[in-house]
Design a protein around this nucleic acid. Structure first.
Length: 721
DNA sequence: TTTAGTTGAATAAAG
DNA sequence: TTCAACTAAA
């Protein structure tokens, strides 16, 4: 078997990783060092060298996107080696989901268990607390949710949580957890963490099943290993067992999700559990310039808790990093916008090579406004994702209810959506009956209609609702999935409803509803109803919960990208603007308080290493926070980047002279040097509490003809002087 | 039951 | 400041 095309494009450490014979291997892959490539080539190598067949390989990722990318890239190699069989590639959650669908009985789940997303989990907890007569106002439900998820991520059931006698609060939380567990079991619903925990227990408590999967899968590959939580680690270790081979790839310097349960300690744990673990470091970077890497290395070296890595490149030194010290966040945004305009004019380069990164999503607003003002097209990432939108969830809740009228989550969602005169009081009555008689809300609703007990008007409304569901159910039997969804939308009059509620947003919502029909059609096309254990409808609903993302539309347009630093992980851009590098903001005040600076620094490291060619570091001397202007200090991270790599752009000594009549800039004086504005007229910025000032672009005499933006205090000056 | 007005909280977000 | 959740009136 010729494996040269697998091996030749790799550098020495990559090659070592790909071809290693060691059954336990950890690849410490720096940013931009070709980590996905190593994973793909490893899989291809295992098959090409005939150590493994495709169906013995399991590759785990954290996002659907990463799983898809791997699937696509592996195809190129697989077609040459072995037919159509592909390794199993998926996220931890999708793999667990599939296992539970297959082994629902052993896992003690109803065959048609329903998945809960975050939001639904929260509602569910609320409901449980209400049943416990807990005063909702005094109870932080999010805290309860985070407690439950934290326990599950640690692999702990309620009865396994060790509570100290003195910690009353924890005892209460465990009580809630117990009640929530019971409720979910009765309702047949499964949240995200539960997927993993059940799948783990499935293996742990059923040696025969474990044995079956252990003998089938021998080669385990894990992407972004630094993001695994304790439970995922336990599961992996259990499944791979004595015989399985572990090939994990990760970067401790890019661990930025501890608040989500990720445990960098798993890397150290791996060493303990597998003493013969082999390490391979990928330190050659194929993305950034020397200067950018130098900055990144210096910054991250301030962390003490690391395994150690030094990125290098044989590429160019590149331009220095640019530092812009703004007066205010508006100034910062204006600078960025001006800079982008200039870039556009000079290079005709495409805008989607440019990204603006920030720590908190609230920062995007000001940036957006500046871009808007200068007619620079942009696109913001984050926020609500497709399947999380209210209109989509409403529509899917109808579908869920058709499939399983006893789904209380779905029932509660649509009973009065669109408004049909069934308010809180009536729903509360339905809940009461359901609770008393131990039946579902749907059944309780039907009983109420039969035996009365509410105002005639309400009963009528309930009857109409029941009729609607029944008629949809009857109609849908003969329809394809997409047509069922279309039928739901028209018969439930969802479009009219959204039009009425919010006139401005209606258009987008209607588009989304139409898009849902498309998505369903596409889904039917590709879904082979792989597991005959569930219907296509059910499969689609699970897909909607597990695949919350869905690519945002019209990616064809050339736009500047805006996103949080967290969202930028794994991406790369020609030009990066890091915004708001200020103490209290980045590092964020909460992280400073919680003494979590190392993770903030890693986040900064992630930001810096996104840049291929140019990196702008921006901070502002003041910022509006909660309606008040605060004066800010530059981020400590700025001081951790060697100053010789950084070129400050603001000219602190500059004075701008301009014509009071025409507002034209005449001259800018820097020290004793006069430079001339050559780009635009500049923009006067006036804000409360700050002297008005002007942004201008000027040509600099020294060295290369170098364009800078000067923000200087406005000076009154006559044209003649 | 619905709505308009008031109060209070505001890190990051995949599956 | 802004936005979501909540309270009080129509």
């Amino acid at each position: 078997m010729d494996v040269s095309n697998l091996i030749n494009p790799l550098n020495a450490p990559q090659r070592q990783a790909v071809t290693s014979d060691n059954p336990h291997l950890l690849v410490l892959a720096g940013a931009g060092s070709g980590k996905t490539r190593v994973l793909i080539h490893r899989i291809a190598w295992l098959m090409a060298s005939e150590q493994a067949t495709a169906c013995q390989i399991l590759a785990v990722t954290f996002t659907n996107k990463a799983a898809r990318e791997m699937q696509q890239r592996i195809t190129a190699f697989i077609d040459e080696t072995q037919g159509q069989v592909k390794p199993w590639m998926g996220t931890f959650h999708s793999i667990a989901h599939r296992l539970l669908r297959i082994h629902w009985q052993v896992a003690k789940l109803p065959q048609h268990f329903q998945l809960l997303d975050n939001d639904e989990q929260l509602r569910c907890i609320k409901k449980v607390l209400r049943a416990l007569h807990v005063d909702e106002k005094n109870e932080d439900i999010r805290q309860v949710q985070s407690f439950i998820n934290k326990c599950k991520n640690e692999g702990l059931r309620a009865k396994e949580v060790i509570v100290s006698e003195r910690d009353i609060r924890q005892q209460v939380l465990v009580q809630f957890y117990t009640a929530y567990e019971t409720h979910c079991q009765q309702a047949g619903v499964v949240d995200f963490c539960e997927l993993l925990l059940r799948a783990y227990e499935l293996f742990r408590d059923n040696p025969d099943i474990l044995q079956q999967y252990q003998s089938r899968y021998r080669y385990f590959l894990v992407d972004e290993f630094q993001d695994t939580n304790h439970l995922q680690y336990l599961w992996l270790r259990l499944w791979s067992g004595e015989e399985g081979e572990l090939f994990v790839v990760g970067d401790d310097d890019q661990s930025i999700y501890s608040w989500r349960g990720a445990n960098v300690g798993n890397i150290a744990r791996l060493q303990e559990d597998y003493p013969k673990l082999e390490y391979v470091r990928l330190e050659q970077n194929y993305r950034s310039t020397q200067t950018i890497l130098h900055a990144a290395n210096s910054l991250i070296s301030h962390n003490t808790q690391r395994l150690g890595k030094q990125l290098w490149t044989d590429g160019e030194k590149g331009s220095p990093l640019f530092l812009y010290s703004a007066y205010s966040e508006t100034d910062e945004a204006e600078f960025i916008a001006q800079r982008i305009l200039y870039y556009q004019e000079k290079t005709q380069g495409s805008l989607d090579n440019i990204v603006l990164l920030y720590r908190t999503s609230a920062q995007s607003r000001v940036l957006e406004e500046a871009l808007l003002q200068h007619s620079i097209p942009y696109r913001i990432y984050g926020g609500l994702r497709f399947y999380e939108r209210a209109e989509i969830k409403d529509c899917l809740a109808y579908l869920q209810l058709l499939l399983n009228p006893d789904s209380d989550t779905a029932f509660e969602r649509v009973i009065n959506t669109p408004k049909r005169g069934i308010g809180d009081r009536s729903v509360e009555e339905i809940r009461r009956i359901a609770r008393e008689q131990q039946i579902s809300l749907w059944q309780a609703c039907c009983r109420l209609i039969e035996y009365g007990g509410l105002a005639k008007r309400t009963i009528n409304a309930l009857q109409l609702f029941v009729n609607l569901i029944n008629s949809l159910k009857k109609d849908s039997e003969s329809l394809a999935l997409a047509d069922q969804i279309a039928a739901i939308q028209s018969q439930a009059k969802l479009a009219d409803y959204y039009k009425k509620i919010h006139k401005q947003e209606a258009e987008g919502r209607l588009e989304n509803l139409a898009e849902l029909v498309n998505a369903a059609r596409e889904f039917s096309l590709y879904d082979m109803v792989s597991d005959s254990t569930i219907s296509q409808q059910e499969h689609f609903l699970a897909h909607a919960v597990l695949e919350t993302g869905g690519e945002q539309g019209d990616s064809t347009q050339d736009r500047v990208q805006l996103m949080t630093l967290h969202l930028a992980k794994g991406l790369e851009f020609d030009t990066v603007f890091l915004c708001g590098l200020e103490e209290q903001l980045f590092p964020h005040r909460n992280s400073i308080r919680e003494d979590n600076l190392e993770e903030e620094r890693r986040l900064c490291y992630v930001g810096i290493t996104r840049a291929q060619r140019e990196l702008y570091l921006c901070h502002s001397e003041s910022r509006f926070v909660y309606g008040q202007r605060h004066y800010t200090e530059p981020s400590r991270f700025l001081a951790e980047i060697p100053s010789e790599l950084v070129e400050p752009i603001r000219l602190s000594t500059a004075k701008t002279f301009f014509s009071p009549s025409s507002q034209q800039v005449i001259d800018v004086v820097v020290g004793d040097q006069v430079v001339h504005p050559i780009f635009g007229e500049g923009t006067v910025i006036e804000e409360e509490g700050i002297e008005p000032r002007k942004l201008v672009q000027v040509s600099f005499a020294e060295g290369e003809k170098w364009l800078v933006l000067a923000t200087a205090q406005l000076q009154k000056q006559t044209e003649s002087s």
